[in-house]
Amino acid sequence: MARNLGRDYKNVHTDVAHLIDLGLLEKNERGELSAPYDEMVIHAFVRDAA
């Protein structure tokens, strides 16, 4: 996945672990990832730095 995304393996691993913890991704006994949703909409609000 990291190679396909052009990202560092460690960063992708950390991101995926967080998404699993949040229940947004699932990992089966063979280590395969899946999303239990057909669609995810994420709203991220960004504030100006103080």
Rank of each mutant, 00 (worst) to 15 (best):
L33F: 07
L24G: 00
Y9R: 15
K10C: 09
K10I: 11
H18P: 04
N11R: 14
N11T: 15
N4D: 15
L19H: 05
R3I: 09
N28K: 05
I42S: 04
I42E: 04
M40D: 13
A50S: 08
Y37Q: 04
P36C: 02
L22E: 11
N28F: 05
H43L: 14
A49Q: 02
E26H: 13
T14H: 13
P36Y: 03
L24R: 00
E39A: 06
Y37G: 03
V16L: 10
N4C: 15
Y9Q: 13
E39I: 01
F45N: 09
E39H: 08
H18L: 12
D48Y: 14
L19F: 06
D8A: 11
V41A: 03
R30T: 09
L33P: 03
S34D: 11
I42T: 01
E29V: 05
L33K: 02
F45R: 08
T14E: 15
D38H: 13
I20D: 05
I42V: 05
G31H: 01
V46R: 04
H13R: 07
K27H: 14
V41S: 05
V12R: 01
G23K: 06
Y37T: 01
E29R: 12
G31L: 02
E39G: 02
D21G: 10
A44V: 13
T14I: 14
A44G: 14
I42W: 01
